[in-house]
Write a protein that binds this DNA or RNA. Structure first.
Lengths: 217, 217
DNA sequence: AGCTTGAGTGTTACATGCAACAGGTAAAAA
DNA sequence: TTTTTACCTGTTGCATGTAACACTCAAGCT
């Protein structure tokens, strides 16, 4: 039983590498993405690198200044709040749809993520965020609306660029975890409207907390 | 008072041309987008054409089959309903936000579009759709959330690919126009929740009508 | 000093060359 | 006839050449 070989194109590998470097912070916000320079480092020609860089622009992770190069996006607080606003809308739609379509396997996976998150909540905010992303990802993926999943995924990645703007205090992480539990409960009971409301309340609350945290009064 | 000259890059012109050709149906859904062929027709080299084609893939107007070329997407009814579902969510958010931020100039523009639509409603469904797109565009643009505007715009373009799936019967266009009027009324009264509800009801109703029209029972 | 000018460096954007690949068709083998 | 093979055609994907452009900085001018 042989599986088809996915033709490993150079551009795909480069895209993954660059995305990883950007999301991990290795390529910091504001960094210039020089095609010749990256090509030298990755030891490939400029063509696939140029293509990959433009794809990242399309994903919203980098911004293009016509004829003056591309650089990693540097999100402001306003940008992050925009993203939360949009995700509140999209993810709550996803939650409502997912409530009606989730398989028991999906629910188990979701529960697993939450349990892991509960265990990690002690102080490891890095792992916590990772699991948070996974939680939301499972929901949008099972919504059954592929475009919703794609756009939500794009927004999710974009938000990860705002690392220093997020809040890592334990009370906030605990609160998020509680809200995740509530969403999961609604999903398990297949209560679409409740899941939708809980998701919307969750993301709106987080956005408010982030805003308050960065605007002292 | 000289205006800055926007460096007209070949890739931008090609992208516009291809987008136009696709949205107008000149390049029909399913058509293969051969880079060398298009380069010959447009009388430019393959590089900017290749780039433009990949951008269209990123916009969702074309689909890439690894090493087997790119073709114009061919939307199914299910795809169109997915798009309506997502837009119902995004556009209703936009309507709520726009209610609080619209300037009187924006409101006048919106009214102008509606009046033109009312006049065109006689039987010119082509012009009607054009104005419909403009109506929604004004609202998402004035929402103040740039990402929302960008993603909604992408969805709007994608929907235009489903030409033959749309309904052009006059009673349906009239109904849409009425609902647009209602949305505009809520916006003019700066009633965010009402605008949100009206927009959501509008798009959900349209989606339902489209579904019913294509699934006889 | 403050401002132009111009050399120098590095990049972008476009053009083009070419190997590997995909798909079709016709000839050869079963 | 059906299957296999070989060949042919056109494309994709990567590499590379290069003109025009953008930025820096230091010399020259006011």
């Amino acid at each position: 039983m042989l599986k088809p070989v996915a033709s490993a194109r150079v551009v795909d590998i480069v895209r993954e590498q660059l995305r990883g470097a950007i999301l991990s912070g290795e390529l910091a916000p504001g960094s210039r993405l020089s095609v010749p320079e990256l090509a030298r480092q990755l030891e490939v020609s400029r063509s696939p690198v140029r293509e990959a860089v433009l794809l990242l622009v399309g994903e919203g992770l980098a911004i293009e200044h016509s004829r003056r190069g591309v650089e990693v996006v540097n999100l402001t607080l306003a940008d992050l709040l925009e993203l939360y606003e949009l995700r509140a809308s999209m993810d709550s739609l996803a939650a409502r749809l997912a409530a009606a379509r989730m398989s028991s396997t999906d629910l188990t996976a979701l529960r697993g993520v939450l349990d892991a998150q509960g265990a990690a909540a002690i102080g490891d905010w890095r792992g916590f965020r990772e699991l948070d992303a996974r939680f939301h990802q499972i929901i949008v993926q099972t919504s059954g609306n592929r475009r919703l999943a794609r756009h939500a995924e794009l927004l999710s990645r974009e938000m990860r660029l705002a690392g220093p703007l997020h809040i890592n205090e334990s009370w906030h992480l605990k609160q998020s975890h509680e809200e995740h539990r509530e969403i999961e409960r609604a999903l398990r009971q297949r209560d679409g409207p409740a899941a939708e409301l809980a998701m919307h309340a969750h993301l709106t609350r987080v956005a408010g907390t982030v805003a308050a945290h960065h605007r002292p009064q």
